[in-house]
């Protein structure tokens, strides 16, 4: 008796879906075109025949290597610092935690250039903390590869924090409690229970964090400057190339586009789809 009712309901929903109102279809079409056209243009204008020679010049490869190294390093730093931050935000119940959460996720929405200026004020040679780093340890961060990692970490870590915090918040506390009643130490619980539970989010967060770090421009050029081999990442190189060698800029953009697509595909395959196992 129940079954026919369900099928007609499903069938009705399907036919309903097919007729999209014009008031939605037209702006939606424009929206799709708006988002996809620039990417298509990039593909069409790409100097395909010279692509390999454009991309295999030594300074492009240097920039590419620097980008990969810095993005990976900043993801590692984000994991080391961001996961504990996420744990505190998710588990510690004190008043004001909401404010703290909002504050640490500011870089998510902050213009990266502003982040760069803020970093200069904090960690620059004349900065709040930076002057002591310089005075006591002779350590200056601006214009160094470490500076690039610092800038990228500042901008990308919140992506990881947000992802991991959400997972920690919704992970089964009962399992941890059960482990505790069975005598597991806090570290064992974190390692054997909590970490496996949040692994998918940890992975997704890391990929987002890495991708954001790879694409970082504003904070990097403001805080770390722009010097080939040292602080000139691929995005900076694109901006640089656009001024006198647009073809090279397009070729480099294609590389970054490819990375973006790969990231999306990876996320979709592995983590974005609500799988039956999670």
């Amino acid at each position: 008796m129940d079954r026919p009712v369900i099928t007609t309901f499903v069938a009705r929903r399907r036919t309903g879906r097919q007729r999209t109102p014009v008031t939605i279809a037209v702006p939606a079409l424009l929206g799709f075109a708006f988002l996809l056209l620039p990417l298509v243009a990039l593909l069409i204008r790409a100097p395909w025949s010279q692509l390999l020679s454009l991309l295999s010049t030594s300074d492009v490869l240097t920039a590419l290597r620097l980008s990969l190294v810095c993005a990976t390093a900043s993801t590692v730093v984000s994991l080391l610092l961001g996961v504990p931050v996420a744990w505190i935000l998710a588990r510690v119940k004190v008043p004001g935690m909401g404010v703290l959460r909002a504050l640490v996720t500011i870089p998510l929405v902050l213009p990266p250039v502003v982040g760069g200026v803020a970093l200069l004020m904090a960690l620059g040679r004349n900065g709040l903390v930076g002057r002591y780093l310089d005075r006591w340890f002779g350590l200056t961060l601006p214009f160094t590869t470490t500076g690039v990692v610092v800038a990228e970490t500042f901008v990308s870590m919140p992506f990881l924090i947000v992802a991991v915090e959400g997972a920690l918040r919704s992970s089964d506390l009962g399992l941890e409690e059960a482990a505790a009643t069975l005598g597991a130490s806090r570290l064992t619980i974190f390692r054997r229970i909590t970490l496996p539970l949040i692994t998918p989010s940890l992975a997704a967060g890391s990929v987002l964090c890495w991708a954001r770090a790879l694409g970082e421009f504003g904070a990097t050029i403001t805080f770390a400057g722009n010097f080939p081999g040292k602080t000139q990442t691929l995005t900076l190189k694109v901006y640089d190339a656009l001024q006198d060698d647009p073809d090279a800029a397009i070729a480099l953009s294609l590389v970054l586009l490819l990375v973006a697509v790969a990231v999306l595909a990876g996320l979709r395959e592995n983590w974005l789809r609500p799988g039956p196992t999670s």
Partner: peptide, 21 residues
């Protein structure tokens, strides 16, 4: 929760990439 989160992150990520390029 997680897809929701990822969905929330994705526009930000894409926006950021577009902004930076």
């Amino acid at each position: 929760g997680r897809p929701l989160l990822a969905r929330a992150c994705m526009p930000v990520l894409l926006g950021a990439i577009i902004l930076t390029t």
